[in-house]
Design a protein around this nucleic acid. Structure first.
Lengths: 213, 213
DNA sequence: AAGGACGAATTTGTATACACTTGCCTTGAA
DNA sequence: TTCAAGGCAAGTGTATACAAATTCGTCCTT
């Protein structure tokens, strides 16, 4: 039960249905879920050490805000670690025809969604693509960190892909990554992934600047 | 109070005075600290989501073990992120004479301890050296992750520096890093740090193989 | 009318109580 | 003597109760 509350609350924070800055009242949450405050507090403490909520003594918990600077900092780490994950995943993926096929299917679907300008469907497949790499990198610690960073970013990104031609360019970048996988060239995968996320971060930054103007 | 218990318990786990595999009884801990079980449980949940303890339903919490594979996985990430932190820290450190001086002082002390074969004092300064880089990289998320990884490793490393000439070689590697800082060459810092931790990880692995024979 | 101070209500922090699960120990039978 | 079954002790999971702190509203003063 407690795990259910945890994951559901977590998701609500990550997908912004509980917005940053919102107060998380223990009493309210315990009523909503029909449990006492004790398990609710444990859930909130877990979310706190994940960096998703903040607490101050006698004032309770609020959903952590994430600033533009934070996004920048997180992307800096992400660029490095996504590349690393790709490099580690290369021998695993390229030697396994089933995995290779799965990746190629994903990119084909992405292409279709891109042509139809279906941003939402595209984003979903895009995330699946990268999660596959995390899961196949063979380093569970790395997988966990990337998941973590991604959760934080999801709370910020409403949609960066509305930039004109973003999807089209993105497909090209992904094709480069897949090609490097196919060749089994780990360094090329690392480089292509790094470049891809660097561009993604720049696009996001530009979008944010435009919005703030 | 709860924070005090958290940090003290955490340190005891990290420095192995509570060994991996040890059972953490809520009742026992609450007696020891003179508080009720409620705050103890919150502390344990926090430690759980940090990956320092594991819990199973109705069986309580035990200190998480860390395997040789985990050490390998963590070092892989560390090599990448320590390099990144160094690269980011370069302009900050090299432009600040005070920081530059602090770093140079540390390496001088490390050299002294190395000559006297004082492993413990050396390790301490060595850690300080690297923590300085984390703190001056300007990316608090990165600092936090590196701290995190370091805590996990500390639980494993008894002493890798007993390898013959390890300290001497280590000093040389650090001097290379400092020299790159002095030149303001971020890429060189990144490379030197990466090489340093790669060698550290290999030394540790060799030590572990030797022990297991 | 505005600002501050006091007090009530709400909310958090912690203790305690009780239900339920687990694991151990005892006892009895093969 | 060994193994199994049942019960008991210990410990976790959760609810509830109470203490302490904060917040908000009201009232008084300037």
């Amino acid at each position: 039960m407690i795990d259910r509350i945890y994951s559901e609350l977590r998701q609500q924070i990550v997908n912004r249905s509980i917005p940053p800055g919102a107060k998380l009242s223990e009493t309210q949450l315990s009523k909503k879920w029909g449990v006492s405050r004790t398990p609710i507090r444990e859930v909130l403490r877990r979310l706190e050490s994940e960096g998703l909520v903040n607490s101050s003594p006698h004032r309770g918990f609020i959903v952590n805000s994430i600033s533009i600077e934070d996004v920048d900092h997180i992307y800096t780490i992400k660029i490095s670690l996504e590349g690393l994950a790709g490099r580690l995943a290369t021998p695993i993926i390229s030697k396994d025809p089933q995995k290779m096929k799965a990746i190629q299917n994903l990119i084909r679907e992405m292409e279709t969604h891109s042509k139809r300008m279906d941003v939402k469907a595209y984003s979903k497949k895009n995330l699946q693509f990268h999660i596959s790499i995390w899961n196949w990198c063979g380093n569970p610690w790395l997988t966990k960190i990337l998941n973590h960073l991604s959760s934080q970013l999801n709370r910020f990104i409403v949609s960066a892909l509305h930039v004109p031609n973003r999807m089209e360019r993105s497909v090209k970048e992904h094709r480069k990554i897949v090609e490097a996988f196919r060749m089994g060239d780990a360094r090329a995968v690392e480089k292509a992934l790094g470049a891809h996320f660097k561009r993604a971060s720049e696009d996001l930054k530009n979008e944010l600047i435009k919005k703030s103007e």
